[in-house]
């Protein structure tokens, strides 16, 4: 199972951001877009085309499930999406991978720093 999950890694930025935005709570499409923008501090913006293309893929892989309308929502056309258990595992695996990358990068950068100074004869 773990091997199966790892075969999908690394995740594309869009997939990662979508899964991440759904990790906290169930959201509708517009909510996901706003959450992604918030998480990336406005540096990464998803268009509806990219968003729903990815959601389509994630639903098919059963990482995300479509919930339906929610009573009392201001726009009845909105549908909510939820991260599934499988989706959460993939996200966790990706975060772990990224953490490893960050850790590795930090260690490398610390080692490399003195060498980066120009030598004098």
């Amino acid at each position: 199972m773990e091997d199966g999950l790892h075969s999908f890694l690394p995740l594309s930025p869009a997939t990662l951001h979508i899964l991440l935005s759904l990790a906290g709570e169930d959201l509708h499409g517009y909510g996901i877009m706003q959450e992604v923008a918030r998480q990336s501090e406005g540096k990464y913006r998803l268009g509806p085309g990219t968003l729903y293309d990815n959601l389509q893929k994630l639903i098919q892989r059963e990482w995300v499930e479509k919930l339906g309308r929610r009573a009392g929502d201001e726009d009845p056309r909105r549908r909510y999406y939820r991260l599934t258990l499988a989706g959460r595992r993939v996200l966790e695996a990706e975060i772990a991978r990224l953490a490893e990358v960050v850790r590795e990068a930090r260690s490398r950068l610390q080692i490399a720093r003195p060498a980066a100074k120009p030598r004098r004869a």
Partner: peptide, 30 residues
Amino acid sequence: RFGDEILSIFDHTKGKLPAFQLLMDSVLSL
């Protein structure tokens, strides 16, 4: 699956420029 939702996002978007960007996005999506 997503037609109504995408349109609802468009309806919530304010301003001509963002709307135009959404249009471009939909063409790429198409």
